[in-house]
Design a binder for these strands. Structure first.
Lengths: 209, 209
DNA sequence: TAGATTGTTAATCGATTAACAATC
DNA sequence: TAGATTGTTAATCGATTAACAATC
């Protein structure tokens, strides 16, 4: 339970969360690891092992309570609390994320958008202010921001990340096509959207083997 | 060389491609696996092993030619040719993707956007026509489309995927928060954007261990 | 040639799966 | 209690890393 938890396990947690949310929405109350196994195309042993990294949530002879397991995973992922977020860059991706309703619903509250383009500064996107990049450093001194979303061009990403980290941000969700580096006490999730398109092209061409 | 190539290897290819593109842009002509190792934070053995899945691109005592290795990887990934693409759904994500200039530059040519919203049908987004979902099936009969990008709500995703596959599409890039299923002769890349945000939250809360 | 670096085999490590005793 | 299903240990599998002979 306090062994180091592998990234493979962590990356399966959102999948469990999604699956359990769906079950819960359908009114399903309990589920066994073998039923989950079928529904999610994962091995039942793996599911039990994954969950037991965090605690014994099941009950022998019964299975797992959908509602409480979902709740546990929300808590493990840390998505049961509110985060203050800024978006840097109001281009296509920045805008799409600013408009994405689910973020607010799930507690990721977008407090401001920053951009270098003077045509955009002062405007609002989905009722969120667009501020000047020049003011980012000062802004971070007064506001308590947890997460920065990088939607800048490649060249600016690392510099902006540095400013965010210096300003106390501990999580960066990076959409720029470059691996941004952060110190050990912060964390970055590099997205690399087009990598997925390349992998898709690979399999379309070569088949699955 | 004709062993089954593991998905782990395939998912590293875009990373190699990005790194080599950067080197090439900087005018670097040759690189050794150990230099790549440092630049990419990957083990040098792993790099040599990965590349040798596809052929012996290096030269003992010299290393790899940046330009030709980049070219080889482009070819392996199948991104050295043109793909015809349709986007389904003209919401936030659909629009952002429609506006994304790099796709066209890299040979992913967006031929049309489909939507159910009559307010959007007939309009243009970044000079690409928005057509009615009702016409998708017919459209696919006359046009040769390789890739469908799903940017629909969750509930519609699987149905639309089925129509795309029936219409001859072999690759689906799915942004809807659900795992879409396709037959064995097609391939789907499920994106699940918010999973990354959850994983980010996890590490922000728990640290890396 | 001597030095460098690959391609590849062998060793290690970690993740997945199977098995089963514990227990609800 | 009997049946079901977990939690967990042991076995297997695959991926990563190390080592080194081949060779440019």
């Amino acid at each position: 339970m306090d062994e180091k938890i592998s990234e493979a396990v962590v990356r399966r947690l959102p999948k469990y969360y999604r699956y359990l949310s769906d079950l819960d929405a359908l009114g399903v109350e309990r589920i066994s690891s073998s039923a989950m196994s079928k529904g999610m195309s994962l091995n039942a042993s793996q599911i039990r092992r994954d969950l037991n990294c965090f605690g014994g949530f099941g009950q022998q002879g019964y299975g797992y309570s959908v509602k409480s397991l979902k709740q546990e995973i929300m808590h493990i992922l840390g998505i049961d609390k509110a985060y203050h977020v800024v978006i840097i860059g109001s281009g296509n991706i920045g805008q799409a994320l600013a408009f994405y309703k689910n973020f607010a619903l799930e507690g990721y509250i977008i407090k401001a958008i920053f951009d270098v383009d003077s045509n955009r500064i002062g405007k609002k996107i989905n009722n969120i202010e667009v501020l000047s990049m020049n003011d980012l450093e000062t802004y971070l001194k007064t506001e308590n921001i947890h997460i920065g979303i990088l939607a800048t061009p490649k060249g600016a990403a690392q510099d902006v990340a540095d400013i965010l980290i210096k300003g106390g941000v501990t999580g960066i969700w990076n959409f720029a096509p470059i691996d941004v580096k952060v110190p050990d006490n912060a964390y970055v999730e590099n997205v690399h959207l087009s990598d997925g398109l390349y992998v898709l092209s690979y399999y379309m061409q070569r088949g699955r083997f």
